[in-house]
């Protein structure tokens, strides 16, 4: 009995791993392609941090502390890098495998279940996002945009951002019918990117808009990462983290169920 249980648990643990292994096998010959996604965020950092930073110079935080604009904007770009990696992987790539390659139809003929596929794809998205975030943090540190050693906490923080957005992305993908649906999603992501306190403290926004922004997972991600890289630790970080975890949990649960409905016809 014990042996059987152990075997069962081991097998369960293996399943999402096989999906990750599959994606690794696809990308192992072309790692550079994956890194192209990182460039976008780095370019934002340079154009805004260096370009706009030259004009704005310093910015006042809500607590009155003055910091360089680049220092303020960098964690937001880190959060958006994590978001982009997660979204790209769980929407474009998963949709391609789901609708065009019919990959999962083959995968589900094995002991793999829809939730294993979901967990596997999200793990892969987190691995990809983790690589982005690490590289981005290294660049930030190199440019002197990290204020303290607490910045290292931004790495697990950005994994949380990736987790929330891979959940959102996967759930959205199960509703997508065709590529035009992606235009709506990209528009949504871009608006969120602009208005989640990325470029200016949201305290400058009108009151009603502030409330909407509070619902944005990216806002919570940015606040969390900014607290890390500025070294402004506070209990609020736990709230931000909890919000991201909650979004991830809810989306993942629904995404698994949706995947079952889409695939078990």
């Amino acid at each position: 009995m014990t042996v059987m249980t152990t075997l069962a648990i081991r097998q369960k643990g293996l399943r999402p791993g096989a999906m990750v292994e599959r994606n690794y096998a696809v990308h192992k010959h072309g790692w550079l392609v994956i890194l192209t996604g990182l460039l976008e965020s780095l370019f934002y950092l340079f154009s805004l941090g260096v370009g706009v930073g030259a004009l704005v110079k310093q910015i006042e935080l809500p607590d009155g502390r003055m910091v360089d604009y680049a220092v303020f904007v960098a964690p937001a770009m880190l959060a958006s890098a994590a978001m982009n990696a997660a979204v790209a992987e769980t929407t474009f790539n998963v949709f391609g495998k789901l609708k065009w390659m019919k990959l999962y139809d083959g995968v589900l003929a094995t002991p793999m279940r829809p939730r294993d596929v979901a967990a596997g794809e999200i793990s892969w998205a987190l691995i990809r996002g983790g690589i982005y975030s690490t590289a981005f943090l290294v660049v930030m540190a190199g440019l002197g945009l990290t204020e303290t050693w607490w910045s290292l906490l931004a790495l697990p923080g950005s994994v949380l951002v990736g987790l929330a957005f891979s959940g959102i992305g996967l759930l959205a993908t199960t509703y997508f019918r065709n590529w035009p649906d992606f235009d709506w999603m990209m528009a949504f992501i871009f608006v969120m990117f602009l208005f989640s306190g990325s470029f200016a403290p949201i305290e400058n926004y009108p009151e009603p808009l502030q409330w909407i922004v509070h619902a944005s997972p990216l806002y919570h991600g940015i606040e969390l990462l900014r607290a890390c890289t500025l070294g402004e630790l506070s209990p609020w970080m736990l709230v931000h983290a909890a919000y991201l975890v909650a979004v991830a949990a809810v989306c993942l649960a629904f995404a698994s169920r949706r995947l079952s409905r889409v695939l078990y016809k």
Partner: peptide, 9 residues
């Protein structure tokens, strides 16, 4: 084939 085998553990 190898990856498919991995789906079976």
């Amino acid at each position: 084939l190898v990856i498919y085998a991995r789906y079976f553990g």
